[in-house]
Design a protein around this nucleic acid. Structure first.
Length: 602
DNA sequence: TTTAGGG
DNA sequence: CCCTAAA
């Protein structure tokens, strides 16, 4: 639970995001997704961004989040629509020592809840229970537990003194520093600049309220994870956490236990994060770049506790249906205020009903979007109106907006539309079932300069709405202001969406596959599809097409996609959308040519 | 409101 | 992309 007021923090680790910022009570959530093996892995930065986009750009400006809620974002995970799940939402309380409610007796409650909560999603959406060790991830509660238990009592306390950064860091090699960085931020870095690394690490650490954990991290890594043991129930249990984040709660668990657990989790986290942060590292000097973006979202103090636990909130247990493919919001498409407890909790996972984090007034707080996309003013006004203590928030938001917009834009580059000037095909190859091995894989080299330039153009476009009709382009021409070149990934998503839901179900596709692309309306999708179809028909007959005759699109559409478009179009002429998937083999059907008069679909 | 089509 | 008729 937690009301999304704004995304004011996005940990570099990509796992934590502070989404609500009420004075001294920011709400934090953690996202994870299920990988191909049915294990929970932390959301990558991309995914986090995608979720943010989703939250930010979905029609409703008001959003509440629930633990366990599944968010479908448009970044591609391993397969299917990546479903990111909110592992937890907690509030972060700056300088709160042990949480009052969180004493031993409270802790004791966990074991009970823990059992039923041993659920994870299979890649196919199935649910596995704790009984199947190999496949099942750690439970959320369990995680909470390891997390909340790890600090003060771990016997690491004595080490605090060692902690004062430099001492240790100075002696570390670049490699060690990178390790430490990884441990601290949960992702790898390719930066070799010692100074930079040190600074980053220290920053990360000092910003963390929980020094004990932090120190542990450092020490642990420095010593080469000597404490690593096989503690964790299963080594392959790969649930992760941003390990830097723990609540500094006192607990009475045996030091060694929690310590080991922590260590294990940590290393796991690192491993998986490695995988998930490939993208980042691929883009080379991105990390180094960070340095020049001073005012990136600040890493917030990471100490926190889990609000749900402490507030003694409704503990209606039940668990949610994991296979749910629907985005919660879809259930109430037009709702401005989205207050329902989300999801169908059918099985046995504990979830917590949402509760407004702002004083429990029951008032939904609209979240204010970052300036990156559209209508900040409006939202801000809404916020002010509805939020009694709005000043603090608005200030922080403003500041944040200004400070981090550039950064954000960069960060979001992945999901953001690409500009036509750079015909790079980007983004992970989304899931076009039949085209796994198509050439349009990931973006490779990106010229940052260009990127920045493009972003600027975009923000210009975004910020100065409606007035002008054209906007100058780099090549000197003018083009329509509201033109947003379709990126390859968008096209692929569209094609995929058509494959799934059928051409004509544009609003469905919009909602399901383009949730995070607010600027693409269902009409846009329709139009684009129409164009794609034309393109594909225009190309195929002549063979491989692409000769001068046709006007080159701003983003070249790979032939395979176009063929796919055509396939789909044909399929849809003959069969109802629902079974369209099965029809691939039947393209030679005799009646295939019926009604070809009209472009041949629907 | 959503779709289909023309411009 | 925009606009609008139809459903």
């Amino acid at each position: 639970m937690g009301t999304l007021v704004d995304i004011v923090g996005n940990e570099e680790a990509g796992v934590d995001c502070i989404i609500s910022h009420k004075a001294a009570d920011p709400v934090v959530y953690q996202l994870a997704r299920v990988d191909g093996d049915g294990r929970l892995v932390p959301a990558t930065e991309d995914e986090v961004m995608a979720v943010e986009d989703l939250l930010e750009e979905d029609k409703s400006n008001v959003r509440t989040l629930d633990t366990g809620q599944i968010l479908e974002c448009s970044t591609n995970g391993s397969e299917g629509q990546p479903q990111l799940e909110i592992l937890e939402i907690g509030t972060e309380k700056p300088n709160i020592p042990p949480h009052p409610m969180m004493d031993s007796e409270e802790v004791d409650v966990h074991p009970k809840e823990r059992i039923p909560s041993l659920v994870c999603h299979g890649s196919d959406g199935s649910v596995c229970q704790s009984g199947s060790p190999g496949e099942c991830s750690k439970t959320f509660s369990e995680l909470d537990r390891s997390k909340t238990n790890s600090s003060f009592d771990t016997g690491m306390k004595p080490d605090f003194s060692l902690l004062n950064g430099e001492i240790h860091l100075d002696n570390l090699s670049v490699k060690d520093l990178q390790e430490t960085f990884k441990a601290t931020f949960g992702r790898e870095t390719s930066v070799k600049d010692k100074q930079w690394l040190k600074r980053r690490i220290i920053m990360g650490l000092t910003n963390s309220c929980d020094f004990s954990t932090t120190s542990f991290v450092i020490i642990d890594n420095r010593v080469g994870r000597k404490q690593k043991t096989e503690t964790c129930e299963s080594v392959d249990c790969s649930v992760l956490f941003d390990c830097v984040v723990t609540s500094a709660m006192e607990n009475h668990e045996s030091p060694s236990t929690s310590h080991d657990k922590k260590s294990e989790i940590h290393s796991i986290a690192n491993e998986t994060n490695m995988e998930s942060s490939t993208f980042q590292d691929k883009s080379g000097g991105k990390d180094a770049e960070t340095e020049e973006r001073p005012a990136k979202r600040i890493r917030k103090p990471t100490k926190r506790y889990i609000e749900e636990l402490s507030e003694g909130e409704s503990r209606d247990s039940g668990a949610k249906i994991v296979s749910s493919v629907k985005h919660p919001a879809y259930d109430q498409p037009s709702a401005k205020v989205w207050a329902r407890p989300v999801q169908n909790f059918g099985l046995d996972r504990r979830y917590l009903t949402r509760k407004d984090s702002l004083g429990g007034s029951g008032i939904q707080i609209p979240y204010v979007s970052r300036i990156r996309r559209s209508r900040p003013r409006e939202n801000l006004m809404n916020l002010m109106k509805l939020q009694p203590s709005g000043e603090g928030i608005s200030i922080s938001l403003e500041k944040n907006d200004v400070a981090s917009s550039t950064q954000l834009d960069k960060e979001c580059g992945n999901n953001a539309p690409k500009n036509s000037l750079s015909p790079r095909w980007i983004e992970e190859p989304p899931v076009v079932a039949s085209e796994r091995s198509t050439p349009y894989t990931e973006r490779t080299t990106i010229q940052l300069e260009e990127e920045v330039k493009l972003k600027n153009v975009e923000s210009y476009r975004n910020n100065s709405d409606e007035e002008v009709v054209t906007v100058p382009t780099a090549n000197g021409g003018m083009r329509r202001k509201h033109h947003r070149p379709w990126t390859l990934s968008e096209v692929v998503k569209l094609v995929d969406g058509v494959a799934k839901y059928g051409a004509g179900r544009w609003s469905e596709i919009k909602r399901l596959a383009f949730a995070s692309y607010s600027y693409r309306t269902s009409v846009d999708l329709k139009d684009k599809w129409r164009n794609l179809l034309r393109a594909s028909l225009a190309e195929l007959p002549t063979g491989n097409g692409m000769h001068g005759s046709r006007k080159q699109a701003s983003v070249p559409i790979p032939a395979p996609i176009l063929s796919r478009v055509r396939e789909l179009a044909e399929m849809q002429t003959h069969v109802p959308p629902s079974i369209s998937y099965c029809k691939l083999a039947e393209r030679n059907e005799p009646n295939k040519t019926v009604h070809e008069t009209r472009s041949g679909f629907l």
